[in-house]
Amino acid sequence: MAQIPPQILIEAYSQGVFPMAEDGEIYWFSPEMRGIIPIDERFHIPRGLRKALRKEPYIVRRDTAFRETMEGCGEREETWIDPVIVESYCSLFDLGMAHSFECWDEDGLQGGLYGVRIGKAFFGESMFSRKVDASKIALVHLVEWMREEGMLLLDTQWLTAHLKQFGGIEVPRGVYLGLLEEALADFGK
């Protein structure tokens, strides 16, 4: 199966570039304005989600169903997650550089997210929900994990209304590249 070699993906992310597939082609992006979610005290959990978290509607796991999480993220009418993207990120997962956060209940996998970790940066790729709040709860667990790991940067690529509710902001490419440089300072040492 065709794929983007892991070393090319790692180098691209290290320079603030990420791929997306469209009509069987891979395109590379580095937006002028970059979406990030601060993981410090500016990370915001909406009140309704706080209530849901207290009820613990899901068992949250990390890295137990990476491929299935990617496939769930691709289950939409228009998607940039094609077989090349799936195989490429599964290769990164096999190297320990990609992760999934998954929400499970008695009916199975109900939502989650996946992304790439390089140094102290996490590049969020996509999220999905089959049941209410599943992707949001996965995001909260991602941020908790990032804090435990001493990470610095949660890159969301673009800012959406969905991500704004968590304190997501846009920063110019130059500012983003400075944050990225700081997050990758110890990578490979």
Rank of each mutant, 00 (worst) to 15 (best):
M1I: 06
I8S: 09
L9A: 05
I10K: 15
A12L: 04
A12R: 12
S14F: 06
Q15V: 03
A21C: 08
E22S: 09
G24E: 13
I26K: 02
I26L: 04
Y27P: 00
P31I: 13
M33H: 11
I37W: 00
P38W: 01
I39Q: 00
I39M: 01
I39C: 05
E41Y: 09
R42P: 05
H44T: 13
P46F: 12
R50K: 15
K51P: 03
R54P: 01
R61P: 02
R62G: 02
R62S: 09
D63W: 10
T64K: 12
R67D: 01
M70I: 15
G72D: 00
R76F: 03
D82M: 12
V84W: 00
V84S: 03
I85E: 04
Y89C: 06
L92Q: 12
A98P: 06
A98E: 05
F101V: 13
C103P: 07
D105N: 15
L109S: 01
G112M: 05
G112V: 06
G115K: 07
R117S: 15
G119V: 03
M127R: 10
F128P: 00
S129G: 08
S129M: 05
A134Y: 04
R147E: 04
R147P: 04
E149D: 13
L152M: 13
L153H: 01
L154H: 09
L154W: 08
D155R: 06
Q157S: 09
H162L: 08
Q165T: 12
E170L: 13
V171I: 14
E181F: 10
D186L: 12
K189L: 10
K189P: 10
